[in-house]
């Protein structure tokens, strides 16, 4: 252990406090009995009970999970296959550079610009195909678009760590393409695929901007619902909901850490 100036631990702990004070405030207010205002009026669990009786919130929760689940499945398949196709085949330098730029587009484009572009595109598509009304289809398309690129980048990084020796050895040991894919490449890529899928899932759960520009009245997600509600003022149910979301985040983070630690050991 090194000795630092006292300012270092002071600033570090201060920064963490700065990150956590607001979150703690939400958790505390979620059990505050006061309906209006923020003065403490005793402990209650009634906001949590109301939460589970609120049909709108339950529907938003279902929409959020449905959107994240469907888009993650699509993006994981597309992204994995894309990474293999891009990294393991002899593209000419120029074609590769072009494909690589296309792949990075969703990462470097500011969310709000991407959202605006999607809104315009769907708006024009609507003139021809009515299925592109704001709603779940548009949201899934939007989410997959940014997820696919993150999945491909994570899987691609994993792919780069698998030396071509391994593939050659498998070939030398009489394996054909299908056998190598099934018994060598996919098992070795698994940590990357799982990691990419988890990233995609969390990105979708967290997304606000893309959803905001593509959602319809029946496809409201939790972040959209919370945003719409808090703009109207303080609501204790939202505190309860946010606290639950926070707990879910903590569990997800711990879970993903355990998984990465386990795969690192392998």
């Amino acid at each position: 252990m090194r000795r630092f100036h006292w300012l270092v631990p002071f600033l570090a702990v201060g920064s963490l406090a700065f990150l956590y004070v607001p979150l703690l405030a939400i958790a505390v207010y979620s059990v505050n009995a006061s309906r209006f205002g923020l003065t403490w009026q005793g402990f209650t669990m009634k906001w949590y009970q109301r939460l589970f009786a609120n049909e709108q919130i339950l529907e938003a929760a279902w929409n959020t999970l449905f959107l994240a689940g469907v888009s993650t499945i699509i993006a994981t398949v597309l992204g994995t296959v894309l990474a293999i196709g891009l990294k393991r085949y002899p593209w000419s330098r120029r074609v590769y550079a072009m494909l690589d730029i296309n792949l990075h587009l969703p990462v470097v484009t500011p969310e709000i610009v991407f959202a605006a572009a999607l809104a315009v595109a769907f708006g024009l598509l609507r003139l021809v195909f009515s299925v592109f009304e704001p709603g779940m289809l548009n949201m899934v398309i939007g989410h997959v678009t940014f997820q696919v690129s993150f999945v491909a980048l994570v899987v691609g990084a994993r792919l780069a760590s698998i030396s071509t020796d391994i593939e050659e050895a498998a070939r030398d040991l009489y394996a054909d393409n299908a056998y190598i894919m099934r018994h060598v490449m996919l098992p070795l890529l698994k940590p990357g695929i799982v990691g990419g899928a988890m990233l995609a899932f969390t990105l979708s759960l967290d997304d606000f901007v893309i959803s905001f520009f593509t959602a319809g009245p029946t496809s409201v997600t939790l972040p959209l619902y919370i945003y719409a509600t808090v703009r109207r003022g303080v609501t204790p149910e939202i505190h309860a909901l946010s606290t639950l979301a926070l707990c879910a985040t903590v569990i997800l983070v711990m879970l993903s850490e355990r998984i990465t630690r386990k795969t690192n050991k392998e």
Partner: peptide
């Protein structure tokens, strides 16, 4: 906090 929803975090500051 990195993975906590942005809307929640922004709203928490309002409190």
């Amino acid at each position: 906090p990195f993975w906590t929803n942005l809307v929640i975090r922004a709203y928490a500051w309002l409190l």
